[in-house]
């Protein structure tokens, strides 16, 4: 198997491939930025599970967070970084290559 720079399989990302992390990336890629509670609701994840996956993505530099106050409560907004966006789309390209699309 070739692993040259144009090989889509080079984009396969083990960190993103975890099902819930891929779903987090898919939602952030579409919405641009989303509030933690919206991610939780849309993905059906518990706060601790989402925190764990978001933390891994933040640690990898794929996701960044912003804190904003609304109704006197602090809300966390998450968004993909350019690096995360590239990694996510690279991963999708690898999956499409596996499928043969």
């Amino acid at each position: 198997m070739s692993t040259g720079p144009t090989d889509p399989m080079a984009g396969f990302d083990h960190l993103i491939h975890a099902p819930n992390r891929l779903r987090v990336c898919a939602l952030l890629d579409t919405t641009g930025e989303a509030e933690f509670a919206v991610l939780q609701k849309q993905l059906g994840l518990s706060p601790s599970a989402l925190s764990k996956h978001a933390g891994a993505l933040i640690e990898a530099g794929y996701v960044e967070q912003r804190k904003a106050v609304r109704d006197t409560r602090q809300r966390v907004w998450l968004r993909l970084t350019p690096q995360g966006n590239k990694a996510y789309h690279g991963h999708l390209a690898a999956l499409r290559a596996i499928v043969g699309q």
């Binding site: 080079a10 984009g11 396969f12 990302d13 083990h14 960190l15 993103i16 975890a18 891994a56 993505l57 640690e59 990898a60 530099g61 794929y62 990694a87 690279g90």
Partner: peptide, 9 residues
Amino acid sequence: METGASAPD
């Protein structure tokens, strides 16, 4: 791909 994360699965 190297992700920079600590020991990803």
